[in-house]
Design a protein around this nucleic acid. Structure first.
Ligand code: ZN
Ligand code: ZN
Ligand code: ZN
Ligand code: ZN
Lengths: 159, 159
DNA sequence: GGCGTGATGATACAACATAACAAACGCCGC
DNA sequence: GCGGCGTTTGTTATGTTGTATCATCACGCC
């Protein structure tokens, strides 16, 4: 699964993204001996509906169509599971969730969030990772989690 | 006003931090022709009570002691004002607010958040800023806001 | 069958944030 | 003085996001 830039997010065939993500998720969970239940897979599919972060209550609305008993804990438990397995990320500045494009490869999520179209790209940038590690090291800080969310205008929305 | 590392946050004389922050805030607001009213100054003082991010409702509890009519909008309006003037930052991953150690100098806030003691250090690191700018540029993304929050253990809590 | 474990159902509540309108205040021109 | 205007604060209500807690269910195991 390759990262898709915001421009591509406007034009590509997104069904392939969803199919890839679900396939990868099934394989990873099987390999790890954890259960990607129908409920969890459905939530993953909803999160992957687009390249825009989706709120937990939006997931709930969508999930409710097929799953009448769904309630907030239903959704949050599924989201927690998916985050624990590295299949989705939380976008802290939006209180929303986004499918991970590098599931299986341990990494911190770094994001470019377009404030106009909402498309959010997960970037993998070794130089940025190194700069973050260095910054922490300089302060003798043991980093465990990185939240990096850059907001602005994507290439498509700039011009 | 210099940044203080997490180690210093455990030992320094913090009254000087508060006094500096309030003095700087008064000067900046006067120079800009905006009103640092008693209410807003009190909220700023509460946020500066420590080097740990403080939640809006914690601010409200504290503010209520001196200001009985305080309600959520009271606090959020003051926090919005202070953020607008660059006197405080919001820590997105904690839904909490922290006094800015570089008020007056335009900058994105980058933070090291200790998950054990809560002490949060604002770091100013040109290399990190450059790496972030480069990462955005590479994706032809026009960055407007950066959220960088590194969680882990501070030097004091590590050893 | 009885038991342990993981997953889901169900109710209630906590924590965070904003909408909308009213009242008070200072300022300025007249 | 006073009426208009912009800013700040008061007030009530509501919206949004996230958890705690306990009950129930499904499955594998002995
Ligand atoms: Zn796609
Ligand atoms: Zn990822
Ligand atoms: Zn201090
Ligand atoms: Zn700052």
């Amino acid at each position: 699964m390759a990262a898709r830039g915001a421009v591509q997010a406007h034009t590509h065939n997104h069904k392939a993204c969803i199919d890839d993500a679900l396939k990868t998720a099934r394989e990873l969970c099987a390999a790890r001996g954890v259960q990607l239940t129908p409920l969890r897979e459905k939530v993953l599919q909803i999160v992957w509906k687009s390249h825009k972060p989706v709120g937990a209550y939006d997931v709930l609305d969508e999930l409710s169509r097929s799953h009448k008993s769904a309630r907030p804990p239903t959704v949050y438990r599924a989201l927690d599971f998916l985050m624990g397995e590295g299949l989705i990320h939380k976008i802290e500045s939006l209180n929303a969730y986004l499918g991970c494009v590098e599931a299986g490869a341990p990494h911190a999520g770094h994001f470019l969030i377009c404030r106009k179209c909402g498309a959010t790209e997960e970037i993998v940038d070794p130089k940025l990772e190194a700069a973050l590690d260095q910054a922490a090291k300089r302060a003798r800080f043991r980093a465990e989690r990185q939240v990096v969310e850059i907001s602005g205008l994507c290439a498509h929305c700039t011009g």
